[in-house]
Design a protein around this nucleic acid. Structure first.
Lengths: 214, 214, 214, 214
DNA sequence: CATGAATGAGCATTCATTCAT
DNA sequence: GATGAATGAATGCTCATTCAT
């Protein structure tokens, strides 16, 4: 299995059990929903969850408040949609740029680089999702899924003899945390070169996981 | 300078410019303020900032809503107090357990271990502060201060020839992120052995920063 | 310049700098705003500023509290609107009934009579504005504007040789005070004949200002 | 009856039916009550009724909030006391300076001059009473008493053939209004010479009431 | 006498949500 | 599909008042 496949497998979009995954939407409905989600993302990234009201989102989208309720059954429904769409978008992005690494170390590196580049390209989405997960208390579920994915990759590296022995869960948690810090850092220091950031992060985890001695 | 001193220096409690540091409080007032701060921490850790209202804090403390306003000039005042007290408590704790490492690597290790142990001991405070800093938009400032501290330590290690060459800011950001993930992980997996977590985290960063080759 | 013109000039509606003068309101919005303003006036006139809460105004208007906030950005915004509308209404009324006096004495008389008749017709508005200006601390500004207007008229009379010499400001202050006492008196003694009141007040100031000797 | 007697009669302090007229107060109690009343007057005159809280009065007096409630059964009780004391003080002042006019016109003049001088001397009290009467809706009662007094004086002048014929109540209302405007004007234009103001006001009403033709 | 801790009602305001049009 | 008028609950906060000390 080549790296691209590994990343693809890792980032596969999981079906949501909530009711907003139904299809059979008209073109206009899909467009409106997208517009609202976009406005929500921008608002969340800009002012934070606490100050993000439906009124504010509607104002940003240039539509009436009522229309949001027409398209989303509740504020929570909209927030779920934001999380789903951003995750799907990010996964598509990362997968597309995943290198053709043929070992696990390369896959980790590709993953990190893809994510950092995504954050540099479209920082609002990740910031928005961070706000939502934190505020709504959904961090736990989302985290578990990501952690499980990372663990699988790390365990694969250990089994292939590439990585040293370590508790995969803790390393996965740490890797996830390091990635989650990226958009905030890029916002705090916009002059940061994403390439350097990605390379440094990749190096850090390469050193942390690779098999020592030999 | 020994490790304990380095940690002490790192964790020095910064003077607050706000007015709630005044002394001259009666015993009963101090006790009530402490009780309210405690109730606020528990509430924040449990339900998150968005659902933490003064009413809820009062209910948890078993007092009237008005009493909070009697002791704190505003909700923000209370939140500031929570941050101040938790930080002071954490720094006291970490400093007290700081090892006697006589090199920079040892200091980093002591810092990580102290922090993980603190999170294991009193997880609510750190979670509460995280909620506040995120919601109130104070995260940026708090981050910068911590990052500056960490950078100083890392740069010291580089200058002493202990650490490899890397951009200290990015490593500091990553280290901070890894630490901030600790209370969430301990909450998600309460069975985690803090000692193992601390050791693993220390090892991870030891490998990441130490001078390679030789 | 005839008396009607003098009064018209005197009572010209001053443009408000606040933003609530915008047009482009729907019919229903205009109606609701009017209803709320009306309820506010009645409440203020009846129970005074201190006991006039948005809850009370809403109750009198038979609507929810939230609806007031929907139509007015703040309590102060509503109060400004009350002042603006009552003043405009009063000025329209007084101007419409302004006599065709062709001297300054006649103009003063027309002004007094118009105002007394307005107070007899719609006493609540003037009482409400009095409450607001006093409580909000706007009394000073409003007073100065009225005094300046009155002074101008009185000075005109002096220059025309109709009025005796007196400090115009003090006479203006006294005249204003006498007028402001009208709604209170009409409320205290509803049986008072407004015509008699107006005539008596006009006579009082006629005697006070007119040129003696000859 | 000479003018001084007329004024004395006019300004006689009426017994209050409320319960705060009881005697048998200790020295310290009397002093405290006076101190609180004084602080209330200053606060009312400075910030207006709406912003005058017991907390604020206590702060100004340099005592605890509770002490006000200890000495006055309610906020309303304190406000009543302010009105009573200011009125008594004012009446004492006016009476003391009442001239020895031997006709009614002179008495009116003495009254006006005394009041203007009092407002110039101690403006806070009258402003405070104005705030209270307006806000509490007590204006009515207080007004009626003053009006009755003035009417009696004016009727006396008419019966003595000094004054022209006019409805005494309306002239009394107007005179009262003119006097009530004095403290506000002195505050708005502190450079005003009280002597000039008094003389002008006296002249105005002299012209308004005196018997014309002869 | 005096304090200040404590309460509970009331305040203006915000906001997610509903619904007639 | 879309609007915006309307609601009602919740929020942070102020304040007169009570009461144990």
């Amino acid at each position: 299995m080549r790296g691209a496949d590994r990343v693809r497998k890792l980032l596969i979009v999981r079906p949501t059990n909530s009711s907003n995954a139904q299809d059979g939407r008209s073109f206009i409905e899909t467009a409106r929903r997208g517009q609202i989600v976009e406005a929500a993302i921008e608002t969340l990234a800009e002012v934070g969850y606490a100050k993000t009201s439906l009124t504010r989102i509607a104002a940003r989208a240039g539509i009436s408040q009522g229309l949001i309720s027409y398209h989303f059954s509740s504020k929570q429904d909209l927030m779920e949609q934001v999380v789903t769409e951003v995750n799907a978008d990010m996964e598509r992005f990362v997968e597309a740029r995943a290198g053709d690494a043929d070992d696990h170390a390369g896959t980790v590196k590709a993953l990190i680089e893809g994510f950092v580049r995504y954050c540099a390209d479209r920082p609002a989405g990740i910031l928005a999702v961070g706000q939502i997960e934190n505020a709504e208390g959904w961090a736990a579920e989302a985290r578990e899924r990501s952690i499980a994915d990372f663990e699988q990759l790390l365990r694969g590296g250990q089994e292939a003899g590439e990585f040293r022995s370590f508790p995969t869960r803790l390393m996965a948690v740490t890797l996830l945390a390091a990635l989650e810090a990226v958009p905030g850092e890029l916002r705090a220091k916009p002059e940061t070169d994403p390439g350097v950031y990605a390379a440094e992060l990749a190096m850090t985890f390469e050193l942390a996981v690779h098999r020592t001695g030999r």
